[in-house]
Nucleic acid binder design. Sequence first.
RNA 1: GAUCCUUUAGCUCAGUGGUAGAGCGUUUCGUUGACAUCGAAAAGGUCGGUGGUUCGAUCCCACCAAGGAUCACCA
Length: 761
Amino acid sequence: MRVPEKYLKPYDHTQAEPTVYRKWESSRYFNPDTLAAGDSDTQTPSFSIVLPPPNVTGTLHTGHALGLTIEDIMVRFHRMNGNKTLWLPGTDHAAIATQSKVEKELAKDGVRKHDLGRDAFLEKVREFAQNSHDTIVNQVKKMGASVDWSREAYTLDEQRSVAVRTVFKMMYEDGLIYRGEKIVNWDPKGQTTISDDEIVYQEEKTKFYYLKYGPFTIGTARPETKFGDKYVVMHPDDKRYEKYKHGDTLEIEWINGPITTTIIKDESIDMEFGTGVMTITPWHSAVDFQIAEKHKLDKEQIIDQYGKLLPVAQEFAGIKITEAREKILEKLKEKGLFIKEEDYTHNIATAERTGGIIEPQIMKQWFIAVDTPFTLRTSHLDGIKSGATVTLKQLMRHVVEKGLTEILPERFEKTYFHWIDNLHDWNISRQIWFGHQIPVWYRSTNAHGRQNGTPSDSRGVETYVGIEPPEGNGWEQDPDTLDTWFSSGLWTFSTLGWPLDDARGKPTLQPDGTINPESDLGIYHPTSVLETGYDILFFWVARMILMTTYTLGTIPFKTVYLHGLVRDKNGRKMSKSLGNIIDPLDLIETYGTDALRMSFIVGNGPGNDLNLSEDKIRAYRKFANKLWNITRFVLEQTEETDDTKPDNLSETDTAYIQELETLTANVTNQIKEFKYHFASDNLYHYVWHTFADIILEQEKKILSEGNETEKTSARYTLRHILRTSLILLHPFMPFITEEIWQDIKREDDRDLIVTRWPLSK
RNA sequence: GAUCCUUUAGCUCAGUGGUAGAGCGUUUCGUUGACAUCGAAAAGGUCGGUGGUUCGAUCCCACCAAGGAUCACCA
């Protein structure tokens, strides 16, 4: 065997990486079905991961690259261990995120979505999403991700839409999805409601005003909402206001003239804050809303959906609240109702995607009830029987509490429980166009007469909830769409085909409704690991647990592995405004995917944020080159070796191989225990500082001075250690190891990606 | 306000109940016939502070300090 010429030059990842990926893809190694022929053992347990579907809002960032690296390590390791391994890719339509992105793009040309209309606008969004999708797929490939492209899914494709509508109908029938008039988070900028989790609090310095309200002094930061305030609330134990009784009424002079106000005593009032007295605006404050509900008080809307004052404000009607404040203060001063103002710092709620300032509103919206007991159809969960009465919150808590699903690092379990305890009913309807339209249809009974089986409310509107549109005329579908996390909550099982057929055409469910064990769902679900960033623990991980336990009565995954944020080298979050965003593709171009992957993994424990420095990546590019040169040396020295173990292996060589076996055992355990930072670091040091610095140098002497027996022993040892190192390094640095493997493998060896791990059964 | 995390060499970070490790950087020497380099070696840390448990703590516990994150939120 001659040493290939490429080894006379430094390792060129730009040459090797695309070629190697194409080879894997064309050999269909990523698809467990084509592998089963001989590369993977169908008897072993399956190993499955779903790719956290990237949003089709543009391109992948370094955080995605980190996740892809960790997931690919898991997947390659298990594939090499003979598990029937599936890594299922896909993308997320990301509803609001994508729509607002496209709206911004259109705004650059002065186009608004209403100019286009729903259908034409959606066409634009689809086009944009398709472009993003194509970019993302290319990036995923660049990272070396061994995902099964034949099973690729999209949260908004037809199969996933059926899953969404099916779950919606189930939950509606179980009384878990309901339409209600409640206080919600209205985003005036995005013109939609959002869930509590989509709120970002931002600190704001403002003024706090003291106003004369009859005999009381009330404090407020928002005088512009106070027109309709006709209840004044204080703590029942507050001695200062003893003489006022709950329910008493007073005639007082207020902003636009005299009003009648009613005294309300409520324990939720903080006596220490301000004067201990406040007026309430139930339509535009969650806390006030609760007080109003509790005491059955009137609620009145003050601000419209565009953030303008309504006629109740009289002379201020039609003015934007941001402009109204000063004018109202002026009037209060004129009327002698203004007492004083103070500096005040508080947090205001903004919408995650649009940045709009949230204005709470009472609106008719769809919700998922998290505290409502229902009968769980089927349960395979330890500790909960089929037919048991539970709440969604209890299900979510149960699986983690009982260890059915394990969260790594463990400390996030506490965070998870805390979130569940504070969870309110989930507002799932959005007033945007892009997404799964709510599978509910309405028609007036006045025109068509009442139908059987469809409920009709007091105003004579029939409601139909179904997977397919209803028969008959006059039905109109609810114009709202679903929160994007509704569809991504189904991701582990909707991608495997539920409730129809899987990607191989096998029915997911058997006629009796149980899961077909031959289907993808039967084979790969629950999935083995969910790997994602800790920043979407609530958004996504918790929602998947909710949706899966409810729908299938199983956990969605056995282990949740959370990685941290990728920051810049100074530890700052990457953001457009800071201009410190690093494109993973640039790093790959310069240093190679293998180097980038190693720099993500070495020294980065689970759940810890990672500061990305190019020095570190450069160090691992050097490591790749080191491996390349080790190979050059070994190939040059072992041209006539056939890789059979010689009978007379020298004592030193035996010791070297023993040491390698210890390393193999350690690395294997570390990977099994999710300690990739140990495994990669150990491999790095072994290859460089033991194999290259010590073993190779010793063998060099033997190869020039030793006798034939010693030389044979040395040649075998060098090749054996190199071969084994390549196998062990492959999950971490898949490209260069496969590239080298092609030049050192035996005739009957398979490609490295499907070569058996040394300790696998 | 609640909870959690971090605090280890100049920088960025691993790590262990028994006299501290890596990468980058710095200094010296060597090599340039595996290595657009590499090798050998050196300097550099009272492992945030104070107590406690222990034969022994950087590692366990308590408290304190600084920085950060998440959640909640007061009108």
